[in-house]
């Protein structure tokens, strides 16, 4: 008994008192800031493994659709200069390492949003990633602000986002204090959290699971792989027609083992970028989605 008390004493209080203001230790690659410094843009763009960096007018390809980049979402044209799409960024740090004066990843972990377009960070901007109020569904905050039960579906996730989703419930992050928890059955859930680029082999199970969740329900994409397919998707240069062909002949640069059609027919309520998404990104994203 005494030893149990000793363990408890050493354990102490471990929870982070305020998860909205906590600081992350050391280097953390959160929201990037792109300076106006002149650099060799072509070289910089060429560094990125997933084509997350673009030059000039940026358009958000509706990369949630197929596994090939495809323009099903309204294209958004932005100002001149460089931009980084956090929906594609794997936070590998290469761009910052090679061009430290041009790109700097800040410790800002609040990078979740409900609008795919808001994940694009443009040159010279140093403003938080924000939610789009026009896309908010009133029933989400009305029904889920004090209790949100989620069913996680790993669809070819590499177990890193699954790991961090699990960590949100540990004694440090303690997401349960907000009434947000992962449950065993979709029948007990208010929504699903998808991780991974969605393999063909998981596409049907994903659909069945989603259908089993009673409405109203939400869809959350956790991690860059889920949002855009990450390293498994095709390069930006290939447009959808070429890609369809390419997929058949397997000359497409992406994986032909994905089936992201689920995302073409369903609206996503929350995007949580990261590789994997950090527990603080996840918790703050879910709080912002449900408590406004």
């Amino acid at each position: 008994m005494i030893d149990t008390f000793k363990i408890l004493f050493h354990q102490g209080k471990q929870y982070i008192p305020d998860v909205t203001k906590a600081k992350v230790p050391g280097i953390f690659r959160g929201r990037p800031v792109i300076s106006n410094e002149k650099v060799d843009l072509q070289a910089l763009v060429g560094i990125c493994p997933t084509g997350a960096i673009s030059e000039g007018a940026t358009t958000v390809a509706g990369s949630v659709g197929s596994n090939c980049a495809k323009s099903s979402l309204p294209a958004q044209t932005a100002s001149e200069g460089l931009s980084i799409d956090l929906g594609k960024c794997l936070f590998c740090g290469e761009c910052e390492r090679c061009f430290p004066r041009k790109i700097h990843f800040t410790q800002d972990y609040k990078i979740a949003t409900n609008n795919r377009n808001n994940l694009i960070v443009r040159e010279g901007e140093d403003t938080p990633i924000h939610f789009d109020d026009t896309l908010r569904r009133p029933e989400i905050s009305r029904l889920f602000r004090h209790s949100l039960k989620l069913r996680q579906v790993s669809a070819a996730g590499d177990n890193s986002c699954e790991w961090e989703l699990g960590a949100t419930g540990n004694v440090n992050f303690d997401m349960g204090r907000f009434g947000i928890e992962f449950v065993a059955s979709p029948r007990h859930a208010d929504g699903i959290v998808i991780t991974g680029p969605i393999s063909k082999n998981m596409s049907r199970a994903l659909q069945i699971c989603y259908d089993a969740v009673p409405a109203p329900k939400i869809i959350v994409l956790a991690g860059t792989d889920a949002i855009s397919g990450g390293i498994f998707s095709c390069s930006v240069a290939e447009n959808d027609h070429i890609c369809a062909d390419m997929l058949n002949n397997d000359v497409c640069s992406g994986s032909r083992e994905l089936d992201r059609s689920f995302l073409e027919t369903h609206t996503v309520d929350l995007f949580l970028p990261g590789n994997p998404a950090h527990p603080l990104t996840i918790i703050n994203g879910l709080l912002e989605l449900t408590r406004f």
């Binding site: 493994p49 290469e94 393999s199 397997d250 032909r256």
Partner: peptide, 21 residues
């Protein structure tokens, strides 16, 4: 269920950083 064809992607993605990630 998790099959992503990763071995094949090692051939398709030719840049070092792609292969590293």
């Amino acid at each position: 269920y998790q099959h992503r064809g990763i071995e094949r992607l090692f051939l398709k993605k030719k840049r070092l950083i792609e292969r590293s990630v």
